[in-house]
Write a protein that binds this DNA or RNA. Structure first.
Lengths: 193, 193
DNA sequence: ACTCTAACGCAACACGAGTCGCGTTAGGAG
DNA sequence: CTCCTAACGCGACTCGTGTTGCGTTAGAGT
């Protein structure tokens, strides 16, 4: 009888993590407070402080929790189509003024606490591993040479988009997404991965 | 007589911005405080609060100030060598446990304030414009087709490195730096940029 | 050399995030 | 159904960040 995962604790966690998501898409990372999250969840602030402690840990837990729900991997018939679809989804996410706040907050939180850093690593590792299916299928179809690292091709596809968002600050549209996919494919076809 | 840039104000700014750099490489972004910067600079905290206001603005101003000093563009004789040199410098910066804290702090600050976001944009735009010389030279030598965007090739070279650091969390060594340069070159030679 | 004022130093203050002690509630065990 | 305790609610408290008012200093103009 050391823990009691069922019942109230589970309800509180669900409510708090949902409040985290809501507060994030509303005020962004900078405007997010433990107290606001607690109030929105209908829970006292000490409860949140005791179970999570900081905003970054809240985001980290929400991230771990979201990882439980699956993610639809595209299957257009060609690697090119699949990679463009993956890149386009990233671009669309960051084009939405509300949805973009979530991944931005994740990166911000990861820069503040080790807990969030680890959660972010797990999240993207899982996502990229899932997405790498499109490359594995392509290799099986003979579209790509088998020496390529599937996950690395996915990462190379996403890299220019995240680079624009977090480093150069340039806008990311679907054209740049498609270009990123094609550039990554060029490297893969050259057998560099 | 609205401003007085010479004399004391200039000395204070110099001392404060140097203190910002020192505090950053010592405690990182998370452990940086306005008060600590003020004390290290030998200045009262109200002075810093009045002229800058927040940590993010301090970092933004330090970034704008650092942009005044030039940056040595590599010239190895080939685009391949030049791009690898650029990528290697990025990798080396993030391999150093102290130096890496500076660009990390810049990204973190840019996620908090618009002022820092703009400063970061200006900084990387200037850097990439300078680095693009290696591509311009390569096109002049006939190494690359002229339809390529010089700056875009530089960005494509750096993108996988920053992606590893800020998104996936994987380590960045010189091998990955060289690979990133070659992958970007493959896309450029395919005429995709 | 004299004046004027922008910028700085100083101390006291206001405010909000985070903590602590204690009483209360709910849910698992027998 | 009853007991027991982990988890929550509540209010008071601490403490550090950032602010304000005022006196002082230094440097630019004449």
């Amino acid at each position: 009888m050391t823990s009691r995962p069922g019942g109230r604790s589970a309800r509180v966690r669900e409510a708090v993590l949902e409040a985290v998501h809501a507060e994030l898409t509303e005020h962004g990372y900078a405007g997010m407070t433990v107290e606001n999250v607690a109030e929105r969840a209908g829970v006292h602030k000490t409860t949140v402080y005791r179970r999570w402690g900081t905003v970054d840990v809240l985001i980290a837990d929400a991230l771990d929790h979201s990882r439980e729900t699956g993610w639809p991997v595209p299957d257009t018939g060609t690697v090119e189509g699949d990679l463009i679809a993956i890149a386009t989804e990233v671009a669309d996410t960051f084009a939405d003024p509300e949805r973009r706040l979530v991944p931005i907050a994740i990166v911000a939180a990861a820069l503040q606490s080790t807990r969030a850093l680890d959660a972010k690593g797990r999240f993207y590792a899982a996502r990229h591993a899932e997405a790498a299916q499109v490359v594995t299928r392509a290799v099986a179809r003979g579209e790509l040479p088998p020496q390529n690292d599937p996950v690395e091709l996915v990462r190379l596809t996403c890299a220019p988009l995240y680079h624009r968002i977090f480093i150069t600050g340039e806008p990311v549209d679907r054209a740049t997404a498609a270009l990123a996919a094609l550039a990554a494919l060029a490297a893969a076809r050259a057998g560099l991965l």
